[in-house]
Amino acid sequence: MSLITSTSPHATVKNNTGAFMRQVIYATLPGLAVLTWQFGWGSVINVLWAVIVALVSEALFLKARGRNIAFYLKDYSAVVTAVLLGLALPPTAPWWLTLIGVSFAIIVAKQLYGGLGMNPFNPAMVGYVLLLISFPVAMTQWLAPGEPLSFVQSWQLFTGQLPVDGLSGATPLDTFRTAHSAGAASEGELASHSILHGQFAGLGWEWVNLAFLLGGLYLISRKIITWHIPVGFLAGLGLPALLAWLIDPVRFADPLFQLFSGGAMLGAFFIATDPVSAATSRMGRLIYALLIGLLIWVIRTFGGYPDAVAFSVLLLNLSAPFIDYYTQPRTYGHKSSKRGVS
C-alpha cells in the first residue's frame, strides 16, 4: 500500500487556472461576433492569427527557459492575451502588426519577467501601446461601422494586398475629438456627424460595447471575476463624464457615449480585470479600477489620444503594489488594518 502523503487540505476544487482562462475566452465571443457584424472578418482573422503567434512565441520561449511546454500552454494565459490584443487591434491590421504586437506582448511583457503570474504589466496592453507608439497610423485606421467588409477584402487587408486608405473611417471618439480640436464645436456641428448618434451612444460601437458588457456579466456570474474592477472602472469613467456633461453638454460627451465607445467595456471587464497585474485586495481593486476609469476620461477629454484604455491600465499596473499596501483588509482579531509598506 503506497500512500500519498501531503499537507492539508486533501481536497481541492476541480477547476484550474486553464479553465478560468477558457471562460474568459468564451466570454469574448459575443463581442467578437458584433465586431464581425459591424466591420467584417478583420477581427476574427486578427484574433486567430494572434493566437497562433502567441502560442508559437510562448512555446519557443518556454523551450528556451527549459520548461514543460504542454503544461504551461495549457494554462491558456497566452491565448487570452492574444485574443484580447486581437480584439483591440483595428480590423484593418496587416499581419505584421499583429505579429509584432503579440510576440512583444508574450516574450517581453510576460516571459522575460518570468512568465505567468510574474508580469507586472498587462501583456496585451504592453503590446498595444508599443504598436500605438510605433505605428500610430496603422493603429488608428478603423472602418466605418455597419459596413462590414467581405472575407476576401478582410483577408486582402490582412495580407497587405489591399491598401487600407480608401476604406478607413473614423471612430465616434475620433470624430468627437476632432470636432473639438479647434475649439469647442457648436451643437449643430456635432449633430452633423451621424456617427455620434446611434441608438444611445456612438453608431455601431454601442453594440460592440454592449456585447462585451454581456460577456463581462457572464464572467461575473461564473465568479471568474468579481464586480469590483468593472464597477470601479465604469464609475470612474462614467461619473466624471456625467458631471462634466451636466455642466456643459456640448463641450463634453455624455456618459452613455463615454461608456459605450471605444474600448470601454472591453477594458472594464476583460483588460483591467487581468488579475496578475491588477491590485489584489477587494478595496484595492475598486480604487485601482476607479483610477483607471478616471484616467481614461481625462485622457479622452483633454489628452492627445482618442482612447486611453491601454495607457490608463499600464499606469495603474504600475501603482498596483502601492495600492495593495494601503488596502490590506482588516484581519480577524485586529482592531484596524495594517497600512503601508512593512
Binding site: L116, G117, P275, V276
Partner: peptide, 13 residues
C-alpha cells in the same frame, strides 16, 4: 495536480 503559477485571482482572499 501540479502547482501552477499564482495568477492573483483573489479567490483565496
Amino acid at each position: 495536480p501540479p502547482e501552477q503559477p499564482c495568477i492573483r485571482c483573489g479567490s483565496c482572499a
